[in-house]
Nucleic acid binder design. Structure first.
Lengths: 126, 126
DNA sequence: GCCAGGTACCTTGTGACGCATGGAACCGGG
DNA sequence: CCCGGTTCCATGCGTCACAAGGTACCTGGC
């Protein structure tokens, strides 16, 4: 997978970060398990090389807190947990995400490629 | 707006390009008008500095064709029209887009931030 | 005739982020 | 004692949206 080459990679931009927050909102996880959890969702298959820098940023920005815990087999695990600020960031993203995808959906539908997401009627073209 | 700084900018990555294709699928447009059309949609407000390199890429890749046309007032306009390959690219993107956003929606919903998009039930977690 | 302002085109440099690659440390089994 | 799985982390690269800046055309006021 060449870096930045395909469409799916671009789609992950900015989204992956908040998907991590979404996973952590359910329960704290460590990086390796996080990759597996994300892989369960279409288009969110990623690797450690992506996750670690991402988690570093989240930690630096105070959106997640970390605690070390011993593992039964292997080196100790660094668990990441959502902070209050992280929860707020996730909430804020959810709003932006909904607005954004609604806009794109409307546009695609006008072009004849849209899904019918039920009549939410949020066209908003002036 | 500092470059690459906020979330909305990241969301546009890879999407904006195909939104341009979607607009052109309705009718050929020139760059200036294109920016205005996109601005009608939430989260797709952009500028010429973004559109021109983008259109150059689309043209280089054969997804759009260009024709010059005189304007009643001002310099001549370069109209961009969708090619067959462009139409195919748009179709392919629409599929990826739907799959991807469905996945993210499910994830956000599990975290308590999701919209209810009606029961399409596409969880797909294994 | 000339200059201000709107229209329309394009280029260059910057920054962010996802990814490939690769390395280090810890553990259990053969 | 080495080998493979687990888990952590750092470095370098490529792509893309954006800001800033530049050129050319046309109209209207003075």
């Amino acid at each position: 997978m060449e870096p930045g080459g395909n469409v799916a990679t671009q789609l992950r931009r900015g989204v992956l970060e908040h998907c991590v927050l979404a996973v952590l909102a359910r329960s704290p996880e460590y990086a390796f398990e996080l990759v597996r959890r994300l892989s369960a969702f279409d288009g969110l298959v990623t690797s450690e090389g992506t996750i670690y820098p991402l988690l570093s940023r989240l930690s630096r920005d105070g959106l997640v807190a970390t605690t070390w815990q011993p593992s039964e087999a292997g080196p100790p695990r660094k668990y990441y947990d959502l902070t209050v600020a992280g929860r707020r960031a996730l909430d804020a993203f959810a709003v932006e995400w909904t607005t954004f995808t609604d806009g794109v959906d409307d546009l695609l539908q006008q072009a004849g490629n849209g899904r019918s997401r039920g009549a939410r009627g949020g066209r908003r073209e002036h």
